[in-house]
């Protein structure tokens, strides 16, 4: 995909023409996207169920509805690119290729979890998969991700740091401190703003003076685009474009992913701030997985039976993870005092 060179400062916010771009997926890409998104959804449904059974404690923020964002973005990455996000992180970890057993066991606080049970839902990492967390303080990952991009620039490689945050975090001051430094030093960071319309219970219109988050970088000359975050092909097109922009040394890029979470902010959120109809409408008309499913069937790239087989295989992986996370022992008490210092 061609990348437009930035010619005018503060002109970088693309509007409808560019923002509507989608990648025409091959059969393999559609099938991979379907499987990866379904994997996240089934995992999250299982996590919700296990939370209800008391196997998962504390806060548990589910990613259901937003799957196309991480799956589409991940398809544009290469080895060495880093990913960092906030507390709604299960989908990002699975998209990075982390083992669902290790993720689920961390949710249940077991020794086989990615952080040996010491991190929990919001704090997981995998150096092997270049996943840098998993951060519980809203907005903190934005400066941290900018620092990962600084590392890439310092080392002189062409890796990109994908820094995810939500519409709520987008109002934190450090986001703009990071925007400033990222553009000033031309750091290879993509700020992916997952706009799921609600910062916990506060809608975007009640919290934000400028509700078009793709414009939030204008005063720093950072180009930005609004993307249909429910269409994995649109996410992929935006990912390819912004990743190329960063790899070529042009500095940061902002992607505002228009998305939606079906569940409450966390498991303990009754979500009284929106109507059931609103949720149903998105589910019925814009569901990211249904969109791929319909295309696969329409193009006869897969039959109902083929898709059922994929579903069964995903369910079996998730069940295996849940099984592991239920029976894996808790951390040894001696772990209380380890991993504080090296």
């Amino acid at each position: 995909m061609a990348v437009a060179k930035k010619t005018q400062p503060a002109q970088g916010v693309s509007r409808a023409s560019e923002a509507g771009a989608v990648t025409e997926f091959s059969k393999d890409q559609e099938l991979a996207a379907y499987r990866d998104m379904l994997h996240i959804r089934r995992f999250e449904e299982k996590a919700g169920q296990m939370y209800g059974m008391g196997l998962i404690g504390g806060f548990c923020h589910l990613y259901i509805g937003q799957e196309a964002v991480v799956v589409g973005m991940q398809m544009a990455l290469k080895k060495g690119d880093q990913v960092i996000t906030g507390y709604r992180d299960h989908g990002h970890m699975l998209a990075c290729g982390m083992d669902p057993k290790g993720v689920m066991a961390e949710l249940t606080g077991r020794r086989g979890g990615y952080s040996k049970g010491k991190g929990g839902s919001m704090h997981m990492f995998s150096l092997e998969k270049n996943f840098y967390g998993g951060h519980g303080i809203v907005g903190a990952q934005v400066s941290l991700g900018t620092g990962l991009a600084f590392t890439n620039k310092y080392r002189g490689n062409d890796n990109v740091a994908l820094t995810y945050f939500g519409d709520g975090a987008a109002n934190q001051g450090q986001v703009y401190e990071s925007f400033n430094m990222a553009e000033l030093w031309k750091l290879p960071v993509i700020f992916v703003i997952e706009n799921n319309r609600y910062a916990m219970g506060t809608s975007v219109s009640r919290s934000s003076a400028q509700t078009d988050f793709s414009k939030r970088g204008v005063s720093f000359n950072i180009p930005g685009e609004q993307v249909d975050g429910m269409d994995v092909r649109a996410v992929h097109a935006a990912a390819e474009k912004s990743v190329a922009w960063c790899r070529e040394g042009n500095g940061p890029f902002i992607l505002e992913m228009m998305t939606y979470r079906y569940r409450g902010h966390s498991m303990s959120d009754p979500a009284k701030y929106r109507t059931r109809e609103e949720v149903e409408k998105v589910r019925n008309e814009h569901d990211p997985i249904e969109q791929v499913r319909n295309r696969l069937l329409q193009k006869k790239w897969a039959s109902e039976d083929d898709l059922k087989k994929i579903d069964a295989s995903v369910r079996s992986v998730v069940n295996e993870a849940a099984e592991f996370a239920t029976h894996d022992p808790e951390p040894d008490p001696s772990e209380l005092y380890t991993d504080i210092l090296q």
Binding site: Y132, A140, V142, S143, T146, G147, L148, T151, E177
Partner: peptide, 26 residues
């Protein structure tokens, strides 16, 4: 200038950026 970096007046931001660079291996 690559290794001796003047920052803007932005303590929250550059402290976080510094930690991010440390997580990244610097």
């Amino acid at each position: 200038a690559r290794r001796v970096v003047d920052t803007p007046i932005t303590e929250h931001g550059f402290a976080g950026l510094g930690v991010g660079a440390a997580l990244g291996g610097l």
